[in-house]
Simulated scan of single mutants.
Amino acid sequence: MAHGDITHIDIPVTDMDRATTFYGNLFGWQIAEVPGYEGYPMWQAPNKISGGGLAPRSDGFTQPRSYVEVDSIDETLAKVRDAGGTVVMDRTEISPTSWWAIFTDPDGNHVGLYEGTTETG
């Protein structure tokens, strides 16, 4: 993946089992929990590239959210602020080699950011 690529899409759901069955049957997605991320089943599309997660719906998370890969979350969040967006969640560690953040654009759309790699060293 490269700077600007969509890397992940989270879909808010109220019933994990129902959503897993629905999306698995509808699109042929492989959906499973990954060790260390229990309660957050991740899906992979048949192309083995696209993917995301099924996450519990909450007051602040009611619509699907795309995550864009960036070279630097901190630099991107500075640009968000300068351009009139709002940071919802600052850079937060996923693993020792990956981080995420969330911002809203001037129209109120929530967008996620991803920085990192799945490599461990």
Rank of each mutant, 00 (worst) to 15 (best):
K48C: 10
M89N: 10
G24H: 03
Y40L: 12
V70K: 09
G60D: 15
T117E: 09
R81P: 03
F27W: 04
T14I: 10
K79D: 14
M89W: 00
T20F: 01
M42H: 09
T120I: 14
F27S: 07
V13Y: 07
D17W: 00
S58E: 06
G53T: 05
R91S: 08
G108L: 13
M42W: 02
N25G: 12
R91I: 00
I9T: 13
A83V: 10
V34Q: 15
D82M: 11
N109W: 05
K48I: 10
G60H: 11
Y23S: 09
L26I: 06
G36Y: 11
V70T: 12
P35W: 03
G51V: 02
V87Y: 09
G121C: 08
V13C: 08
P56A: 09
D71M: 12
E115Q: 13
M16T: 06
Q30F: 03
K79T: 14
Y40K: 11
A45N: 06
V70N: 03
G53N: 07
E93L: 09
V80Y: 03
E38R: 10
D105E: 01
E119V: 11
G60K: 11
E115D: 02
E38I: 01
E38G: 07
T86R: 13
D10M: 03
H110W: 10
E115L: 08
N47C: 09
M89P: 00
P35Y: 05
E119L: 11
F103I: 04
A19H: 04
T76G: 07
T97W: 03
P96I: 05
I49K: 15
G108Q: 12
P96W: 11
G39C: 05
T7M: 12
D107H: 10
T92E: 01
Y37N: 06
D59H: 07
G60T: 12
P41R: 04
T21F: 01
V88C: 01
G4H: 02
G24M: 04
T86E: 13
D90F: 01
I6H: 00
D10V: 02
G36C: 09
A45T: 08
S50K: 12
S98P: 01
V34E: 13
E33W: 01
P12V: 04
I31W: 03
Q30D: 15
